Computed example of a mutant assay.
Amino acid sequence: MVEKKKVEKVVAKPQGNKKKMNFKEWWAKTLKFFRDVRIEMKKVVWPSQKQVVKHTVVVLAFTLFFTVFILLADLIYDQLIFKLLLKIK
Rank of each mutant, 00 (worst) to 15 (best):
Q49F: 11
R35P: 00
G16L: 00
V68I: 14
E8Y: 08
V53E: 04
V53M: 08
V44R: 08
P14K: 03
F65G: 06
K5A: 05
I81T: 15
V59K: 11
F23V: 02
V37G: 07
K54W: 08
E3F: 09
S48W: 10
V53R: 07
L85M: 12
V7N: 02
V52S: 04
K43I: 05
E8F: 06
K32G: 00
L75M: 13
R35Y: 08
Y77V: 12
K19I: 05
D78Q: 09
F23W: 08
V52K: 11
W46R: 10
L84M: 04
R38T: 09
E25A: 06
E40C: 11
S48F: 06
K18H: 06
L72Q: 04
Q49E: 12
N22Y: 01
R35Q: 05
A12P: 03
L71G: 02
A73T: 10
A12N: 10
I88L: 10
V52F: 05
T56N: 12
M41V: 05
Q79Y: 14
P47F: 08
V52D: 03
V68N: 07
K19G: 00
F23Q: 05
K43N: 08
A73F: 15
Q79W: 14
Q49A: 12
K83Y: 13
I39K: 02
K50T: 10
K83D: 09
K42H: 11
Y77D: 13
I70G: 04
V37A: 11
I76R: 04
V59L: 13
F66A: 07
F23M: 01
F65Y: 12
